[in-house]
Design a protein around this nucleic acid. Structure first.
Length: 266
DNA sequence: CCTATAGCCTGACGGC
DNA sequence: TGCCGTCAGGCTATAG
C-alpha cells in the first residue's frame, strides 16, 4: 500500500524506535529486487553505525547514518517496514534485516521485486536528479503552487496527480480519494481547472493525506467519507450511496462517484 | 517534446 | 480441491 501516507507511517515506526541504536549486522533475503540491493556496500557501511534521523519525500524514505550518507528505501507496491523483537519470527519476503546491538531488529520486506534499497550521499541531490516534484504535505502546497506544478499537463487530472515529477507521493488509491474529496472527475483535463478549483484540490490533497496518516493508514480508522473500503465491484459512495463507477485511466483502475464527480461535459 | 500503453514480479481471489 | 485467468496501491522502457 505504499503511497505517501503509508511511507510516512513507516517513517514514524523508525523514528521513535530505531534511532540511535547501533546496528550489529545486516542480512539479506537471497533474492534481489529488480534494482539490485548493494549488499556488499551495505555490509560495509551499516554495522557499527546508527540511524540519526529520517526524512520522507513523496514515496521515498531516507534514514540518515550520521555523516556517512543515508539509507534509501522505496517500497514499490508491496514493501513494508517492520520493527521486531529479537525472538519474533522472520517475516515473509524479508529483503533486508538489520539486527541492533540490543538484539532488536528492523526488517524491510517486499513480496514483489518492485522496490529499491540503496545508499545515497545527499537526499536533496538525489531528489533533484530524479526530478521529483515537491511533497504535498512537507512543502507548502497551496493552490498557487499546485497550479504551477500542473503547468503543461495535457492529460487527465488523475494522470497529473499521480505524476511524481509534478507532485511526489500520490498514487492510485489516494488520487481517487482526493478526487472524491474535491468532487472532481478523474477524467477532467488537468488544464481546464479554474484557479478556485485548483485551490480546492490543494485543500483536498492535504486533508486526505493528513487524515490517512492520522488514522495510521488503518482501514478501520480511516475517516467516514473515504472510499478505500468500497474499492470493489458494486462498491458504493460512502457519502451518497451511489454505486461507484469502476474504470481504467492511464492504465490504472479508477473508482469514482457519478453523483459527486460528474462526467466532464465535452 | 509529450502521453499512453505494455511489462515487470508475485500472490490472492473468483469462476469453473 | 485444483487449475487458470485476472488483477493489485509503483515505475520504466517503448510506442505512438
Amino acid at each position: 500500500m505504499p503511497e505517501l501516507p503509508d511511507v510516512e507511517v513507516y517513517r514514524r515506526r523508525i523514528d521513535p524506535d530505531a534511532l540511535h541504536r547501533e546496528i550489529a549486522s545486516a542480512a539479506f533475503g537471497g533474492t534481489d529486487l529488480r534494482q539490485p540491493i548493494p549488499e556488499k556496500l551495505l555490509r560495509e557501511r551499516l554495522p557499527g553505525h546508527s540511524f540519526t534521523g529520517t526524512h520522507r519525500h513523496g514515496k521515498f524514505l531516507f534514514a540518515r547514518l550520521g555523516d556517512d550518507g543515508w539509507l534509501l528505501l522505496h517500497f514499490g507496491m508491496t514493501g513494508e517496514i517492520l520493527l521486531l523483537e529479537h525472538d519474533d519470527p522472520e517475516p515473509k519476503h524479508t529483503r533486508l534485516e538489520l539486527r541492533f546491538e540490543d538484539a532488536g531488529r528492523l526488517a524491510y520486506t517486499n513480496m514483489r521485486k518492485l522496490g529499491r534499497v540503496d545508499l545515497v550521499d545527499d537526499p536533496e541531490r538525489f531528489l533533484e536528479e530524479e526530478e521529483l516534484g515537491p511533497d504535498p504535505i512537507g512543502d507548502a502546497m497551496d493552490g498557487g503552487r499546485l497550479r504551477t506544478r500542473f503547468a503543461g499537463a495535457r492529460g487527465t487530472l488523475k494522470a497529473a496527480l499521480t505524476d511524481q515529477q509534478r507532485i511526489a507521493g500520490i498514487g492510485n488509491i489516494y488520487a481517487d480519494e482526493i478526487l472524491l474529496e474535491a468532487g472532481m472527475n478523474p477524467r477532467l483535463p488537468a488544464q481546464e481547472l479554474s484557479q478556485s478549483a485548483v485551490d480546492r484540490l490543494a485543500e483536498a490533497m492535504r486533508e486526505v493525506l493528513d487524515a490517512a496518516i492520522d488514522a495510521d493508514v488503518d482501514p478501520d480508522r480511516m475517516p467516514e467519507g473515504f472510499m478505500i473500503a468500497e474499492r470493489r465491484d458494486g462498491g458504493r459512495c460512502p457519502r451518497c450511496g451511489s454505486e461507484l463507477v469502476k474504470t481504467k485511466i492511464s492504465g490504472r483502475s479508477t473508482y469514482y462517484c457519478p453523483h459527486h464527480q460528474p462526467e466532464p461535459v465535452s
